[in-house]
Design a protein around this nucleic acid. Structure first.
Length: 851
DNA sequence: CACTACATAAAT
DNA sequence: TTTATGTAGTGC
């Protein structure tokens, strides 16, 4: 006899359970269980959710040790087989568990948890029939029926409804926890478990006429004068002869639900629940847009891209186009070509809630064929957008990082806009980079990838130039666009040396040039964008008498002041306290709240330009849903003279009347201990400079800096990407940083510092020995084709988070080594050695933030 | 002895 | 991660 069985990855996040478990497939589910199915399985003493990763037939097996799948959770598997395969690749590439990779691919709504349901055991000793397998011989022992009044009350409560969850029961009888446990143990109560999803499919009640023709006429005739309203409703339904939403019928005809119900009772109408999709953009109109005529430059690029699409080749393109060169239009037209051939497209943007204009353009061009996914959607909305993709109702998905997992079945194109953005790297497990996942996914589908940017990451650019090189698993084809279709020039950029300003007695945060520039715009009725590089401008609280700085008790970091709620919060662990009015150390009243950097700038602006209208965009003003769009809309409608903000004002905005861009302090990021700080600074400055003068009016940009001769600032002011890259690559090469090496950041953490230090040393030592045993050279300096070097352990830049000390090792390597595998193996060995759950080791492959 | 707190093993 | 089980320590 052959048994069907499935290998299942269970939702239990531990190293020991990170492997497939075998389950029997019950006869009833035989045709339904597929690779990618989501199932509920018995695991230990409970039921957990899991994903089927493969199916097998086995002739003989030890069935006694194998349990059966308990429930199938969806009609269609939420994961197509290619995504299951991709998850396996991710778990290797990023040293993460398979379940975390699988979980990242589906909406949170489908992360079900088991619910415990309680019933009163039947008289014959059985719970309500489970799969009907009642075997009388099982109940040999009569149940003890000595029931106390308290127990009787609980039994009555449970009997009263057919589904009582453990949670409900616990809430109703908070004192009786052990009694209930006892009743379960004695078999008076019976428990069963089932997976319950986070959200339900939304339904709307609809009404339709249940009669027609002759029968309808008879029905209408049957209403007496008492039933005038019912007759009206039926007439209305017959006239439209479609199912209508109940709500709508009630409000249009001004009748009550009771009237309709009567009709249903008489059999003249039917009420049905119909599934609907929650629409995050309900009621919004999007201006239809037609393809623009391509410039010769765009034409060349478009031709190359569509040629690749037509051949259904897997190719990666790096589209390097200056700001305003019309990259988006090229994306739109290429996507059009893709969907015309019956394949689907994914568009990734850094953080979609920050770029509403992008959504507008896609909705305007493709209308209902687009699903939008971003972090500001509710769980339900997100689920519904995802279902539109899974059910093939849309052909384009646009969204942030996680949209790379959009479950299309014939993927033709993946576009990644602003490919250099760090937000494409997920900082939580699984710590994947959407760019690498995109390339892998495209490879699976024979699809094309477009990586677009005005300032490509050095990794991508170097890979394109060198045909793969040290870094790349992929070698993109370089495509360039150097002109703006509008014909407008890139704005003139002036660097302002703030040291000079200070020397000449200007202690304000505005240079004289910028000050005059703003004044001139105010006069002319034009607009200004001001960027404050937030890094470096913290929002801490300091006592001016004793120098006390409010810090988090569990993390080595200062607390951030939030004006709105007047409290101090920790960035890392969420700790919050009420902002003190006197210094807790010395009692002095000279305790100062340095608001967010932007608040200070706003204050100064108001002082310098009385009556100036400032629209401020920062974490405080954009926390509410839709706040971004509102603020930007207000600025577009010229309800503000100045748009002041952090990084978020630098990206993808396009306002015709902005003729001045000012960067308050360009170099705050340069002082960060991060080898990418020059690159980040260059990218930010170039981006923000591109915001000015995009249309008829010419633009002007002022970059204020204390390091005006730094190459990232100089080249940004000249819009000179190539010179910047040349210089930056030189530095990277000397220091053996990406793209001339790859990095793995390993962070170990524990409450106890000495123990942690010892384990970190163990780990690093062990890894060194293992690398040497593999024959990998110990240093990158020796021009070896393959080499691996371990730096550290050293204390992490933030040495303590949530009361856990942190030490890190940086693994630098070059060549085709399975360094990740080795690191993972070593980490496992270190953990096994200590067998202390408090020790955590986090592995970050290709880290973007070196914290 | 009853109870709690904490460590440990196992999960198909 | 959750759950059950074992072990050492506490109080009466």
């Amino acid at each position: 006899m052959n048994y069907r069985m499935a290998k299942v990855i269970v939702d239990v996040p531990s190293r020991e359970t990170d492997r497939p478990f075998d389950y029997l497939i019950p006869e009833s589910m035989a045709g339904w269980i597929e690779v990618g199915s989501r199932v509920g399985v018995p695991f230990g003493r409970r039921t957990v959710q899991g994903f089927v990763v493969s199916l097998h037939e086995q002739p003989e097996m030890d069935r006694s040790r194998m349990k059966a799948i308990q429930e199938l959770l969806d009609m269609t598997p939420p994961l197509p087989p290619d995504l299951v395969e991709l998850a396996e690749w991710m778990s290797r590439k990023y040293a993460c568990s398979l379940i975390s990779a699988l979980q990242a691919m589906i909406p949170a709504a489908l992360k079900g948890k088991a619910e415990r349901y309680i019933r009163v055991t039947d008289a014959d000793g059985e719970g309500l029939s489970e799969e009907g397998s009642t075997d009388a011989s099982d109940s040999l022992y009569p149940l003890p029926r000595l029931v106390t009044p308290e127990e009787e009350e609980i039994l009555a409560f449970v009997r009263a409804s057919d589904t009582v969850t453990m949670t409900q029961l616990g809430a109703r009888y908070p004192e009786a926890a052990s009694l209930i446990k006892d009743m379960l143990a004695r078999g008076v109560l019976t428990e069963s478990q089932a997976i319950k999803d986070k959200v339900r499919k939304k339904t709307v009640k609809t009404v339709a006429a249940a009669v027609s023709g002759q029968a309808a006429q008879e029905a209408l005739a049957s209403f007496g004068p008492q039933a005038r309203r019912q007759k009206e409703v039926l007439e209305f339904l017959l006239e439209l002869s479609l199912p209508l939403s109940l709500q709508e019928v009630l409000s249009t005809l001004q009748v009550t639900a009771g009237t309709v119900k009567k009709l249903v009772e008489k059999g003249f109408a039917v009420i049905e629940d119909v599934e609907v999709f929650r629409d995050p953009y309900q009621g919004r109109r999007f201006q239809r847009s037609e393809p623009l005529t391509r410039t010769p430059e765009q034409e060349q690029v478009y031709h190359r891209l569509t040629e690749s699409l037509d051949a259904e080749r897997h190719e990666v393109f790096l589209l390097h186009g200056v700001t305003g060169s019309g990259k988006t239009e090229v994306y739109l037209q290429t996507i059009e070509c893709c969907i015309a051939s019956g394949r689907q497209a994914i568009v990734l943007v850094p953080e979609i809630s920050l770029t509403p204009q992008m959504v507008e353009r896609f909705k305007g061009r493709f209308g209902a064929k687009v699903a939008v996914m971003h972090s500001r959607l509710s769980t339900g909305e997100r689920y519904d957008e995802w279902r539109k993709i899974r059910e093939g109702r849309v052909e384009v998905a646009i969204g942030a990082r996680s949209a790379i997992f959009a479950p299309f079945n014939r993927l033709g194109l993946i576009v990644m806009d602003e490919e250099h953005e760090t937000s494409y790297k997920q900082e939580e497990t699984p710590k994947y980079h959407a760019r690498d996942v995109a390339v892998m996914r495209a490879r699976q589908h024979g699809a094309a990838v477009i990586l677009g940017s005005a300032t490509p990451s050095l990794e991508s650019y170097h890979a394109a130039r060198s045909g793969g090189g040290d870094y790349g698993e992929f070698a993109p084809v370089l495509l360039e666009m150097k002109q703006r279709p509008s014909g407008s020039q890139l704005p003139g950029v002036q660097i302002v040396d703030m040291r000079e300003e200070l020397k000449e007695g200007n202690r304000s945060m505005f240079s004289r040039a910028l000050h005059q520039g703003i004044a001139a715009r105010l006069e002319r009725g034009e607009q200004t964008v001001l960027l404050l590089n937030r890094r470096g401008y913290s929002t801490f609280v300091m006592c001016r008498t004793c120098g006390y700085v409010a810090g988090c008790p569990d993390c080595d970091i200062s607390l951030t002041y939030h004006q709105k709620s007047n409290n101090l919060r920790c960035h890392y662990c969420g700790y919050a306290e009420v902002a003190p009015s006197v210094c807790p150390e010395c009692g002095s009243e000279h305790i100062r709240y340095f608001g967010t950097g932007t608040q200070r700038v706003e204050g100064e602006l108001a002082k310098l330009f009385p009556g100036i209208r400032v629209i401020r965009m920062d974490v405080d003003t954009t926390s509410e849903k839709g706040a971004h769009e509102k603020l930007l809309q207000a600025f577009r409608e010229k309800k503000g003279d100045v748009l002041l903000g952090t990084q978020m004002v630098a990206k993808g905005l396009d306002f015709p009347d902005v003729t001045l861009v000012g960067v308050i302090a360009a170099d705050t990021a340069l002082n960060f201990p991060d080898f990418r700080s020059a690159e980040k600074t260059f990218q930010l400055l170039t981006q923000v400079a591109g915001r000015a003068g995009r249309h008829q009016l010419p633009g002007e940009v002022f970059i204020q800096s204390y390091m005006p001769e730094h190459y990232s600032i100089v080249h940004a002011s000249g819009h000179d990407y190539l010179s910047f890259v040349r210089e930056e690559l030189k530095t990277r090469k000397t220091l053996h940083y990406p793209p001339y090496s790859r990095l793995i950041l390993v962070t170990l953490s524990h409450e106890k510092l000495p123990l942690l230090l010892r384990m970190a040393e163990n780990f690093a030592g062990d890894l060194r020995v293992k690398a040497q045993r593999q024959g990998w050279f110990g240093s990158l300096d020796r021009f070896a084709p393959a080499a691996l070097d371990i730096l550290g352990p050293v204390a992490s830049p933030i040495p303590r988070i949530k009361n856990r000390y942190r030490f890190q090792c940086m693994v630098k390597y070059r060549g085709e080594l399975d360094a990740v595998g080795l690191v993972r193996e070593t980490a496992a060995a270190t953990l096994d050695q200590l067998r202390d759950a408090m020790l955590q080791i986090s592995i970050d492959v290709d880290p973007q933030m070196l914290m």
